[in-house]
Each structure stands twice: as structure tokens, then as C-alpha cells.
Design a protein around this nucleic acid. Sequence first.
DNA 1: ATTTATTTTTAGGATTGTCTAAGTTTTATT
DNA 2: AATAAAACTTAGACAATCCTAAAAATAAAT
Lengths: 217, 217
Amino acid sequence: MHTLTEENYLKTIYRLFEATGESVSTTAIAEKLQINAASVTDMFKKLAQQKLVLYEKSRGVKPTDKGRKIALHILRKHRLWETFMVEKLRFSWDEVHDVAEQLEHIHSEILIERLDQLLGYPRFDPHGDPIPDKNGKMPIVTAILLSEAKVGTLYKICGVAENSDRFLKYLNKLGLVQGSSLIVRELEEYDGSMKLTLQDESELVLSKEAAASLYVS
Amino acid sequence: MHTLTEENYLKTIYRLFEATGESVSTTAIAEKLQINAASVTDMFKKLAQQKLVLYEKSRGVKPTDKGRKIALHILRKHRLWETFMVEKLRFSWDEVHDVAEQLEHIHSEILIERLDQLLGYPRFDPHGDPIPDKNGKMPIVTAILLSEAKVGTLYKICGVAENSDRFLKYLNKLGLVQGSSLIVRELEEYDGSMKLTLQDESELVLSKEAAASLYVS
DNA sequence: ATTTATTTTTAGGATTGTCTAAGTTTTATT
DNA sequence: AATAAAACTTAGACAATCCTAAAAATAAAT
């Protein structure tokens, strides 16, 4: 069993590695976890000793198979708990992250299996992120960014590319949630902003930045 | 916000104090938490500094109002999570304790409120222990120990006085669970053992020790 | 009331995970 | 290729929580 701190490092390393495909640097982790770079070096050594990451001095770390497996398990727990809170406890998707950060460190295989069952084995969490199965397999995603969508076509929101509180609250305000249907009306050449029509016929304009942070299918 | 360790001390102090009505000694806590007495002394000082307990050197601690409130809140969380696991995740009542020991340290008021709501504001947990409400009020219990029950009367099991794994597993094996009805048939003068009839007409004999660990009403 | 036994505290260390400050190494710029 | 900038590591410290061993305080037994 690993400490809460180790689990958090591992999860963060895994995510950065998946995002970039390259070794994860000391500063990148220091940034994400809001701690000093020197502390990160210490932990890199500790994780390397346990064969959870591959560490090359001054060159960052890559998760090993063992490390990736653990990270995926934490991610699975995180996303199942988020789903639970939204589906069963009527949280909105911008409220669940911080609590899930705590719940993901609860150690109990059977608890997670039963939770998964209670939720009906969901494949995506409320943010549209895929939930690894108990073997660490991710469901395949076919989503595209809204910013790459075609004019005149109907889409469904299936996830976000950015998880910041600010962005999620903004979406909430606009009434855009997981599963919302929308039609792309116009793509403004000048700044890449988009005019959309929603289910209820209301119209709204999204900036290029916002559209590039939304997944649709 | 208090550390996980402080919370565990506080909870243990509260329970021992409630059970005995007297100052809680260093060794009692050391015993319960399986740590060294010297470490307990350190923590007694730390908790006293925060006014969570009243500490008299070489004479043990008593919880203050502030400390009791926190302990009750942890107990509330523990018992709600246990109820959740039994009611919603089909755990049996002997499987839930260890996981609840972890879950009780999750910090989120709203999570617990919503959980309480999901469960229909239960007043007793699967072991029959009372669940404090959000203000720390305990429901009143009218249960008696089975060992003090009258011959010929019908009772319902509503809780246990002993929480050990061994005991709960034993009850499970006998088919005795929360809510089981039983009639006391005979009280053996010699050793205080009892002959009981269950719903399904089956008979069984319980030792005095076992009967003194079961609450009925 | 002494002596003995038990309980509690103190003193001094270990470990984990953090920090700052000062060096190294690597990368980027000229 | 030399220098400047950025990133990384080392060294030394500190807080929290635990430990062991020894001293002090309290309780029990003669």
C-alpha cells in the first residue's frame, strides 16, 4: 500500500505523461502539486526505488507498468466517486472534484467494485472522462473538440478538455452540461468564436478558447 | 481542520469517556490505538493546547465541549458510511467497520448531508448504534441487553454492545442480524446461558457472554 | 509507612514529507 | 564556443508522529 502523497505524485506523473508522451519534469510536478522542486526530486528517487517510475537524473520520470497500473486505479476511483456524487447525491459536475480528490485514496477493492455496480458500470464520468475498468482498460473515446466541429451539424457535449473550476462554473451558468445537444450555427473567421443553438432554441456565442475546451460527439 | 491522527485520538478518547464516565488514561488510549504510551502523552498535550481535551498531568484527559463536538461529528460520519455500505452496497454488518474507519475522515459537510438524505436520515446504523444528527444530538435508545431479557417474551435485535470482528462473524453464522425477532425460551441458572427461538422456529443456545453483548427491544 | 508494582512523563531519536539556500547540470542565446 | 538562463540536485533544517529507555509520580501491597 502506498502513502497518500505517493499516490498523488503517481497520479500527477501519469496524467502529465499521457498528455505529453514525454518524460515528466521536476518543475512540471512542482507546479501541479504546488510544492518545491527540491521536494519533487526527493520523491522521484523514492518512487524510482519502488520501481513505480523510471528516473533519469536531471531528465525527469516516466511511469513504469507498475506505476501506471496504480495511477489508473486511482483515476478509476476518482471518476467513480465523481459519478456517484453527481448521479446519487445530486451534486453538479463543478462541485465534485475536491471531494473526489479525498475519496480516491480510500483503500478497499470491494468498496469500489460495489460502487461500480451500484452505478451500473459507467464508462464515462460526469466530465465525460473515461473510467478505467478494474483491469485498467480505458473505454475508447471518439469525441472531437467543439472548436473542430462543422457548421450546421448537431453534436452532444460529452466532456471537457479543461477541468478548472472557473471553466466548469462558466459552463454551468450557460446551461451547458454533459449530454446537452447543440447545433453549430456560425464560425466567425475573425476570432474563431462560434454561434450555437441549444435544445431550447436559445442562441449563444462561445469564444474559440471555450470551444477548444469542450468535447462533443 | 484537524489531522487524521488527531481525529482518531479524539474519537477514541470520547468513546472511552462515554463508556466509563471517568478521565481517560494514557495506557487506555495506547492500548486501543496500539501505540506507545509516551506517544499518547505527546498527543494529550497537543490536544490540550487546542482545548479539545482537559488534561491533568498523570491523571488523564476528558473531552471538552469542543472536543466532544468533533468526536460526535466523526462518529456521525462513521455510522452514516456504514449504513450506506450495508443499505446501498449490500455489505454485511461485519464487513463495514474497517472501510468506515477510512471514510470517516473525509472532509465535506455537504457530502455527509447528502449521504444522510440519500439514506433517509437513519437514526441507527447497521450495528444498532445511534447516529448523531448534524448538531451532534443522539437519538434516545430504549434497548436492553439480551442477558437482562425476560423469559417468554418476544424481542427484536437492535444492536450490539461489542463490535469485534469475531463476534459479528459469529452472529452472522447463527443468522442473527439487525431486526431479527426472537423469543427467550429458557434461562439456564447454572451458567446464565439462554435458549432462544427464532422467526423460522429454529432453536439455539447463546452463552451469557454473547447475550450480554446483544441489545434487544 | 515502607516497599513494590504500575502508570506516566521526559529525554533523545527515527521517519516522512516538506522547506530554503547553495551548488550542478542542461538548455538557450549570442 | 562562451555565456547567460533555466532546471535540477544536494545539503541542512523543521514539523508531525512515532519509538525506546530511563526517570518520576501514583497506586497497591505488605
